[in-house]
Amino acid sequence: MDFIKITEQPSAYNHLEDMSVHEVLTNINKEDQSVPLAVEKAIPQIEVAVQAIVTQLKKGGRLFYIGAGTSGRLGILDASECPPTYGVSPDLVIGLIAGGDYAIRHAVENAEDNANQGWLDLQAHQINANDFVIGIAASGTTPYVIHALESCQSQHIPTACITCNPNSPLRQVAQFPIEVVVGPEFVTGSSRMKAGTAQKLVLNMISTTTMIQLGRVKGNRMVDMKMTNAKLVQRGIAMLQQELQISEDEATQLLNQYKSVRSALDHAKL
């Protein structure tokens, strides 16, 4: 089947510069509403990928996200939020971007076209067969990502991909392909829009479900979160109050004593 970049097809809207601000905002919102429906269609693909990820992490492996541009930044965002949210090591979920850390805030010309660098970046972390790698590329054609996943396959490292074009070259090198087809963008080719939103939603689903499966949530609460500011301390106190049916003062004392919601709950119920 021929590969067509749907993400590069012309927008359904034209003469954007002639639209009023209200029309632009309304039409962007109209397009955005299609994204969760596209993600819903991909849930079976996401499910099998998460099951494989959990298996690897339970063996002591790590989860890597690798991408370029917007896709790379979204992977780094999701990875960076796992330690404070779930109390895991920063080495458990790792985001890599073409061009390195400088590329998080700046465009690095031609970085995504370097077919060898993705695998080199993974090797810098001593990637091994216990790990799991997700290649993120809206187009499904990014050489930096494709070659990294090809190299993973040759080393028996399981892989998935998140892309917004069906039957892409990236899909061909991913053991667990996730395709979220959101259609042409409001601004033709601007895949930071619907495609980026779709990727963010899928990453939310992957990391959240994985952390739940690893026991990092109790009930519906982030009992392992790192309380690094006043808001999070207050959230922890509220969790203890609600779970143990105690006063705010008692909850504060428990949290001060045990330093985490999980530890406070475990000791309080002994």
Rank of each mutant, 00 (worst) to 15 (best):
V93F: 15
E250N: 10
I136P: 01
C164W: 12
A264K: 02
Q33M: 08
L203S: 05
I146W: 03
K226M: 15
A98I: 05
N27R: 15
R221P: 00
A115M: 00
T252I: 01
I76H: 05
T85P: 00
T142F: 04
D91T: 14
A160W: 02
G135F: 02
I162G: 11
N14W: 09
N128C: 15
A103N: 05
A137P: 08
N220K: 06
V261T: 03
R221Y: 07
T85L: 07
G75T: 06
I104R: 07
I6L: 03
D18G: 03
A138P: 00
K30P: 00
E17C: 10
E243K: 12
Q242F: 04
E47V: 13
G135V: 06
N128E: 13
V21C: 14
G99V: 13
K226D: 07
S168L: 04
I237S: 03
A111S: 15
I97E: 13
F3T: 14
G95N: 02
S34E: 13
A138L: 04
Q153G: 14
E112N: 08
V88I: 14
F132H: 03
N27M: 14
N229T: 07
A107D: 09
A238I: 06
F186R: 01
I162P: 01
V181M: 04
T209A: 11
G95D: 01
L77D: 00
I237D: 08
T26A: 15
D113G: 03
V187W: 05
V48H: 13
G135S: 13
T70G: 11
N114V: 11
P166E: 13
A98R: 00
I162T: 03
T210N: 04
E243L: 03
G236W: 11
G236Y: 09
E179P: 06
R62F: 10
I136W: 05
Q175R: 12
I28W: 01
Y86S: 10
A42W: 00
D2Q: 13
I134K: 05
N167E: 03
L37D: 04
Q56N: 15
R62V: 10
Y144N: 00
I157K: 06
E81K: 04
L96D: 04
D249I: 09
P10G: 00
A107L: 12
N110L: 07
Y13I: 12
A129S: 15
Q241R: 14
G72A: 10
G60I: 03
L203E: 04
L63S: 09
A12G: 13
K226A: 14
P184Q: 10
I246F: 09
Q245W: 01
Q241W: 06
L214V: 05
G215V: 07
T197G: 06
T159Q: 08
S11V: 02
G219F: 01
D266A: 08
D266H: 02
Q241L: 08
T208V: 13
G67D: 12
K269V: 12
V173I: 05
D266P: 00
